[in-house]
C-alpha cells in the first residue's frame, strides 16, 4: 500500500508523523519542565540565561508540565487507538528480534551488508518497546501524581514515595531513550530515515536495499 512519488517511498503517513512530533515535542518540554520541578535551575545556574527565568518558578513549570502531560496523553492515546483500530502492528517486537538486532549492528560495525528487514528493523522494534515501557511508566506515575494533587485527595505515604521515585526513574529512562534514539542517526545507514519523519517519504534505493521483506 506504499504510494510512490518520484523514486520516493511513502514510509510515514501523516498520522504517524503527527504523533511522532507531538510526542517528541511533549517529551522534550516535559523533560525541561520536569527537571524544573526538581530544585535545580534556581540553584545551579549561577548566571540565569536570558529567557529562562520562568524555569525557576515551580508554579509555572508545573503548569507547563501539566500542559505537555496533556498533549503527551493526547498523542499516545491517539497512537494506540489509531493503530489498534487499523490493526497495524509493524513495530511490535517479534520473536528473534534480539538476535536480529545483533546481526544488523554487527553488520553496521564491520561494514558488511545487512540482513534484509521488514518495515521496521528489529532494533527499531526493540527501541519502540523500550519507549513504550519507559513512557508508559512516566505516564502511569504521572497520572498518579496529578490525581494526588487534586484538592482533598490525601495519598498514602507509600503512594507519594513510590510515585515520585518511579516517576524519577522513568524520567531517567526516557532521557536515555531519547539520547539513544538521536544517537542512532549518527550511523550513516539510518540517516536516510530522517526525511521520512518530516515529509513522509524516503529514498527508493534505501528501501530496496534494506527492506527486501
Amino acid at each position: 500500500m506504499r504510494q510512490k512519488k518520484k523514486n520516493k517511498i511513502y514510509r510515514q503517513p501523516l498520522p504517524n508523523r503527527f504523533v511522532h512530533w507531538g510526542v517528541a515535542i511533549s517529551i522534550i518540554m516535559l523533560i525541561i519542565t520536569g527537571i524544573g520541578q526538581m530544585p535545580v535551575y534556581g540553584r545551579y545556574l549561577i548566571v540565569q540565561p536570558f529567557g529562562t527565568k520562568w524555569l525557576t518558578s515551580y508554579e509555572i513549570t508545573l503548569l507547563v508540565h501539566y500542559f505537555f502531560a496533556a498533549t503527551l496523553l493526547f498523542f499516545t492515546t491517539y497512537h494506540i487507538v489509531y493503530h489498534v483500530m487499523k490493526k497495524e502492528f509493524d513495530i511490535w517486537p517479534k520473536k528473534g528480534d534480539v538476535k536480529g538486532s545483533y546481526l544488523i549492528i554487527k553488520a553496521m560495525i564491520l561494514g558488511q551488508k545487512e540482513p534484509p528487514s521488514e518495515k521496521y528493523l528489529p532494533e527499531q522494534r526493540i527501541a519502540y518497546l523500550y519507549f513504550v515501557i519507559s513512557i508508559g511508566l512516566v505516564i502511569v506515575t504521572g497520572v498518579i501524581k496529578v490525581i494526588k494533587n487534586i484538592m482533598g485527595v490525601q495519598p498514602s505515604n507509600g503512594i507519594l514515595f513510590w510515585g515520585a521515585q518511579l516517576h524519577n526513574l522513568a524520567t531517567v529512562m526516557v532521557i536515555l531513550g531519547v539520547v539513544m534514539h538521536l544517537a542512532a542517526f549518527i550511523v550513516k545507514e539510518n540517516r536516510k530515515l530522517l526525511p521520512g519523519m518530516f515529509t513522509g517519504y524516503v529514498d527508493e534505493e534505501y528501501v530496496k536495499e534494506r527492506h527486501s521483506l
Binding site: Y66, A69, A70, T71, L73, F74, T76, V143, I147
Partner: peptide, 10 residues
C-alpha cells in the same frame, strides 16, 4: 485538562 486529554486523543 490533563486527565481529560486521553479521551480527546482516543
Amino acid at each position: 485538562a490533563t486527565l481529560i486529554a486521553p479521551i480527546a486523543g482516543a
